[in-house]
Computed example of a mutant assay.
Amino acid sequence: MRFEVTILGSNSATPLYGRNHTAQILNCNETISLIDCGEGTQLQMQRYGLKVNRIKYIFISHLHGDHYLGLVGLISSMHLNGRKEDLYLFGPAGLQEIIDLQLHYAETTLRYNLIFKATNPNHAAYILADTNFDVQSFPLSHRINCTGFVFKQKQRLPKINRALVESLDIPTTYYPLLKQGIDYTDNKGKLHRAIDLTTPAPPPKSYAFCSDTVNTPSYWPYITSVDLLYHEATFLHEMIDRAIETFHTTALQAGEIAKKVGAKQLLIGHFSARYKDLQPLLLESKTVFENTLLAIEGQTFEI
């Protein structure tokens, strides 16, 4: 099953050095989700060959402009391009009012259903159960209400040992039952256990998106043992006072968090425009968590 994230934007408040505002595309078995939608998101999708109308779900972490100001333009482009499929949007309660106001003064009625669900900034909640994955939101600690998201694959059914079942002349119509753990009895009365005729599917993988937040243990339980952790790392640790003042995290802290929660891999982003060269941020995080990567725009990371 395909499970990967493509970075569209990785800078913080100011786009600079060719880096754009936060936005990511998550592909789970060809179901496409957009996570945050800073300015220029749809242009970035065009640049990297990603089709806007394939997006089914959009998740917005909070209402600072660098995380959502590309959204109305994206929604409008979907309308102009003739979208008919429902679009599901998850984000802070105020986002509904912002969108309605924009559409009202543009005298625009969307051609498709925009289905909005407000996230809870105070408590964790399961907000989506798709056929391919589940999504949980959880509160972060930023200057305004902000949530993170964990995307976890559904557990897949076991795989049929085709050579073995064919040698036993088990009808193909019974294969789905074997995958569900139902044993097969042949016409001679011999029992063939489903567990012996199948191989377990790989364990489901998970991706956590930690948007803007100051370092606090309050959200760590929700990201424990994830396969890939995206965490903001706005500043180098020499600017820890500025990070605390602005409710952000340093690269060193991001590495420490990944280590404490047992993440398998760390992806850092939301870089301050003060840093043209990102290598110092990467090296700082690696001092405590070696398996750290930079969220470079245009790159796709398999989870």
Rank of each mutant, 00 (worst) to 15 (best):
Q180G: 12
L191M: 14
T198Y: 02
L157R: 05
V135G: 01
Q180V: 08
F209S: 02
S211Q: 05
T198R: 03
T131R: 15
L110G: 03
G91C: 05
Y207E: 02
R111W: 02
L191C: 14
I98F: 07
P121Q: 08
I127K: 06
A194K: 07
N81V: 06
N187K: 12
E85S: 14
L177R: 15
N122G: 10
F151T: 05
R162G: 15
K117C: 03
V150N: 02
R83M: 13
K205P: 00
A106Y: 12
T173H: 12
H142W: 07
R111N: 15
D212K: 06
P121R: 08
Q155W: 04
K205I: 01
N161A: 10
T172K: 15
F151C: 04
E166N: 13
E97H: 12
K179E: 15
N215P: 00
N187Y: 11
T108L: 13
Y88A: 07
D212L: 09
Y174K: 11
F116N: 05
Q96I: 00
D130V: 09
L177S: 10
T119A: 04
E85T: 14
G94K: 02
K188G: 10
I127E: 05
D169Y: 15
P176V: 10
N161M: 14
F133L: 07
T131A: 11
D134H: 09
T216F: 08
V135P: 00
E85F: 00
S167F: 11
F90H: 05
C146Y: 00
V135I: 12
R162A: 14
A194P: 02
P204Y: 00
I127L: 08
K188W: 13
L197M: 09
K84G: 09
Y112S: 15
P139D: 08
V135Y: 01
D212P: 00
Q136H: 10
L177F: 14
I170T: 11
F133D: 00
